[in-house]
Amino acid sequence: MKLSDFVVPEAIMPSVKAESKEGAVRAMVDSLKNCDSIQPDHVDGIIAAILKREELGSTGIGHGVAVPHTKHPSVDRLIATVALAKQGVDFASLDGEAVYVLFLLVSPPDRPGDHLRALETISRHLRNQNFCNFLKQATTQKEVLELLQEADNNQLD
């Protein structure tokens, strides 16, 4: 699976200004709504589901990265967006550090395999220091998108 298979390009946020986990999640879900990947009626439900999921264990997995996610019946395929928080967001991460890179995923309830493959794709690329460092430095949607494409094509190794 490639990042481009599930990241919605128009929803990428090169600079999200959020002071809390909830604020960051809301901004990212709104961004998916604004490019018609999520129906407006389902925005609040998806945000609530993601935050409920966070209560079970933070998806701030360390090294400045978080992967908030949920399943939701309103989507018929796996969708995601990427946000960069230059100031850092308190995500109650496992290592206690602020989060600077966020991948938010929404997947159909009946496709757990897709969700795991997306996590594999994200994790695999985040292990690449070049990808992480370049991503944190990106300032425009185009730059982020190009980085995702380069990662997909293994051009950052």
């Binding site: 997995i61 360390g62 090294h63 496992l94 757990p112 395999g113 795991l116 493959r117 996590l119 594999e120 994200i122 994790s123 695999r124 985040l126 292990r127």
Partner: peptide, 12 residues
Amino acid sequence: DIFELPTLVATY
């Protein structure tokens, strides 16, 4: 390593 474990893609 939390970034390595998901690469197992360990389904049910």
